[in-house]
Design a binder for these strands. Sequence first.
DNA 1: CGGCATCTTCAGAAGATTCTGAAACTTCCG
DNA 2: CGGAAGTTTCAGAATCTTCTGAAGATGCCG
Lengths: 189, 189
Amino acid sequence: MPTETQPASEDSQGDVIRESQDRFVNAWGKMASSWGIPRTMAEIHALLYICGDPVNTDEVMERLQISRGNTSMSLRALIDWGLVSRVHKRGDRKEYFETEQDVWKLFRTILRERKKREIDPILVSLHEIRDLTGRAEVSSEAGRAIAAHNRRLDDMLEFIEMVDGLAERFISPQGRGLKLAAKMLSKVS
Amino acid sequence: MPTETQPASEDSQGDVIRESQDRFVNAWGKMASSWGIPRTMAEIHALLYICGDPVNTDEVMERLQISRGNTSMSLRALIDWGLVSRVHKRGDRKEYFETEQDVWKLFRTILRERKKREIDPILVSLHEIRDLTGRAEVSSEAGRAIAAHNRRLDDMLEFIEMVDGLAERFISPQGRGLKLAAKMLSKVS
DNA sequence: CGGCATCTTCAGAAGATTCTGAAACTTCCG
DNA sequence: CGGAAGTTTCAGAATCTTCTGAAGATGCCG
């Protein structure tokens, strides 16, 4: 960010970028929080994305007006998600952070992580629940009730397993890639 | 729910179903809240799904141990989402509620609603933001900075628009249906 | 119309989540 | 080793979300 080396006329240009960045960060934070992702975590990620260059903790704090503690914790969470990496600059003891600039890779990582955290666990639970009621005899009234109940569980299980399986193929690191999935879908008449 | 008319031996069967239902409702509520959906709203929906038959307000309150107010508000939200419908029973002034039993239709509705509420608005915001910085000349240092910034916004916009467009085709009421999308994807070698 | 059954609303309470700030820790350097 | 720069942690504070309960609305029926 070479602000001092710019002529005065370009300061206003810088302001436009800055405002654009701020708005982007805001919009992103708002959306993320409606998807159950902590707002500041998403805002930091948006800031790193939209700035492009590595940013350090103090810059994040200043831009987003958040505490050092929050910044540190959120950055760690982003690193755990695999979305952000640490960068070191020569002659600067501060740590800098940057994020993937390829949007496809970014979303692939996000989807993979959400699958791991929110889909896989519920599959485990649903299987446990399904095992409670085994196979039902349809000869009695009660047996038919259990059979109907099992059918509902099985329908749900089958659906989620299908989503899980497709996700596995398209978002796992060794998978075919999100872009291919999108291409396939867009070809359907 | 014919509990009184059943022989004693079937009560224990009923207990198994009941426990299974409770666990299902719990698991579902937990998952939903990690996706930014109010827990009780999801729990009510899960209860209606897993019970199959229409359920009235008092039964919901009793099963989930929640207040009448909460039940009423959450049911209204579910109706607004298009996930639940009111049913009237002859000779009973109470209102009953039921939900779609076809899991594919269910998720189609959920996806459609989320797109409308969370994807479409951010597309509007991103377009507004993008319009702030127009087309950049790459002849100056500042111009190049704006161009790089615009490229980032455009990448993001392009990605989200693609997702939006595909969603439109597969989840809209007149669309080709979720099932077709899944079939296409599963065919990729 | 009066009275009863049911449903809705919303202000404030309860609960959950996120954020802060200061202390503790780590690392680097002379 | 001493200490400065930078980072992490976490208990409590602030904030945001969700839930309750009671008052009021609605509507049905004799």
